[in-house]
Each structure stands twice: as C-alpha cells, then as structure tokens.
C-alpha cells in the first residue's frame, strides 16, 4: 500500500466537537482498510483568505495532517466521504514520495547558450527540420520542378 498524506482544515469548533470530527475522519480511513501512521496538529489560526464551504463563510480554521497507508482504489471513496463532511473546509490527499537522488545542474544551466545541452538539442532539431532547397547554380538551365 502506498503512503498518503491527508491535509485537513477543520472549521472553528469547540474541543469535543473537534475531537469527534477527527475521530470520524480517522475511522473512515480505518474502515477502508487503511493504516494511520501519524497525526499532526498544526494549530488553529485565521485563514489566509476567506473560504465559503457548505453554505458558510469561514475565516478561521484548525489544521491537521494525517499520514496513512491505503489502497489506491480507496482514495476516491475517501475523498468523496470527506467532501460530504460539514466540518471539513479543505481536504487534500497527497501521495508521499521519497525524494530522488539529485545533482544540482545550476552550473550547466549558467553556461553560455552554445555550450548548453538543451540548446544544442534545439539546434539539432532545427537542422533536421530544414527542407532540401533547389540549388540555383546546379548547372541545370531550367527549374526542374513545378513552381
């Protein structure tokens, strides 16, 4: 099972309500055969922009991040279920991927254009796209094709 991260923004609620809302989301993940790895509370604060959700305008929210493993086929069901929840303002599921080993290419990018690999490739493509041209001083005294 691939690991995912669910980012939740819950609306401003009292503590018991908040707990029940979180429990609901967690249980829906567990019901789909998922495994919850980690639950982070990122605090509550004023939203950077007002969000209208479920017929209400929200200006404050509480942020949570839940790391879980689940079958990829179940993700759309989960999204649909969270979409119906009244207490959730934002729900985003992202796949957690290991960062690939990567070498900085800034040095190659800062070279003069003629030395850059992508520019050289572009020049090669442009050369390939050149149509063959009739040579006017080829010795023939007529243009051999239709003009």
């Amino acid at each position: 099972m691939p690991s995912y991260e669910l980012f939740l923004v819950l609306r401003q609620m009292s503590r018991p309500e908040l707990v029940s809302a979180l429990k609901r989301t967690a249980e829906s993940i567990l019901d789909k055969g998922g495994i919850i790895r980690r639950l982070q509370n990122l605090g509550s604060r004023a939203l950077p922009y007002k969000i209208s959700e479920q017929g209400l305008v929200h200006r404050e929210g509480t942020y949570f991040a839940i790391n879980f493993d689940a079958a990829p086929a179940k993700i759309s069901d989960l999204k649909e279920e969270f979409g119906r929840d009244v207490d959730i303002i934002r729900r985003n599921v992202y796949k957690m991927e290991e960062p690939e080993k990567y070498e900085c290419t800034l040095h190659e990018e800062m070279l003069p254009p003629a030395y850059r690999k992508d520019v050289q490739d572009m020049i090669e493509i442009a050369k390939r796209k050149q149509k063959p041209k009739y040579n006017y001083n080829s010795g023939l005294d007529y243009y051999p094709f239709q003009k």
Binding site: V9, L47, Y49, I51, Y63, I89, R90, C104, T105, E109
Partner: peptide
Amino acid sequence: TGLCKQKQEDVEKAIRRAQHCALMPTY
C-alpha cells in the same frame, strides 16, 4: 531566485499546494 530547474519546479509545486491547502495567501 537563482535555483536550478528541478528545485525551482519543486518550490513552485510546493507553493501552489500550500496555497490550495489554505496555508499561504495567494495575493
């Protein structure tokens, strides 16, 4: 920014994600 291509792409992706998650303002 003076970042390499890959890192610039990662930063842009992360910022757009954060804005969609209501973590960052857009304007």
